[in-house]
């Protein structure tokens, strides 16, 4: 029998190794898998390369993982926000690397990684500093820059409903990078608000088919980053 359910976030992230590449879902706080990230902080893996659209807020979730010194490099489109102090401070001190990627290129690199396409050509960033050193080729008279796939050891994703087979739905704009990150990781770990029986999600509305998911853990009433930040919570 296939059963991808695991008991708690700690078990779900137990085998992340030092130096692994980890995709972390979320656009701002929407879709940020706070409980899985906190479990990863407790687990202790270091020198991680993390791809995520932002760098977290306050001293919880992704910002806390970075503050704990576990991240060697961020691959990111927008490492700034009103409440984001941790990454900027480490970056200015030269204590964390940044690979800045246009948001759509980040998404397509992840999608390509999941789809088995090692590289693609995009018009985004042509003629800018973010295309420096990359191959540019003309197609039908227009220049495009070559970008490579982004694959990872793990993905940490937040979804809404899931079943033991790994089929998922998402909640509103918390979907963002979740579906493509599940595709691009060797081990996609998903926290869901509720686990249902197989068949409990209409096949017509499954967003991520279970084939892309390795582990699923129920986290009812997941924390919202902005609420934790407003309460002054710091992790650990």
């Amino acid at each position: 029998m296939i059963d991808k359910r695991v008991g708690d976030p700690a078990q779900a992230v137990a085998d992340v190794k030092d130096g692994d590449t980890v995709l972390i879902g979320g656009f701002g706080e929407a879709g940020s898998p706070i409980e899985l990230i906190h479990a990863l902080i407790d687990q202790g893996a270091r020198d991680l390369v993390v791809a995520s659209n932002n760098t977290g807020n306050g001293q919880v979730g992704l910002a806390a993982l970075i503050a704990a010194g576990r991240v060697r490099k961020m691959i990111c489109s927008y490492p700034r926000s009103s409440n984001s102090r941790v990454f900027p401070e480490l970056y200015r001190k030269g204590q964390i690397e940044l690979e800045l990627v246009p948001q759509g290129t980040l998404a397509e690199r992840i999608r390509a990684g999941g789809a088995g396409v090692p590289a693609f050509f995009t018009p985004s960033s042509v003629g800018t500093v973010l295309a420096e050193g990359k191959e540019v080729r003309e197609f039908e008279g227009r220049p495009y820059v070559m970008e490579r796939w982004l694959r990872a050891d793990f993905a940490l994703v937040k979804a809404e409903l899931g079943d033991r087979l790994g089929n998922l739905t998402y909640n509103k704009t918390a979907r963002n990078f979740g579906p493509i990150m599940c595709m691009a990781a060797r081990t996609a770990i998903v926290q869901v608000s509720r686990i249902v029986e197989p068949g409990g999600i209409d096949p017509e509305v499954v967003v991520t088919p279970g084939v892309f998911v390795k582990r699923i853990v129920e986290v009812a009433n997941a924390a919202h980053e902005s609420v934790l930040v407003a309460q002054g919570v710091t992790y650990p």
Partner: peptide, 16 residues
């Protein structure tokens, strides 16, 4: 110098 570079989707929007 010292600015945190952040691009978001701007380069994709102007390209497409």
């Amino acid at each position: 110098p010292g600015a945190i570079p952040a691009v978001g989707g701007a380069m994709d929007l102007v390209a497409g």
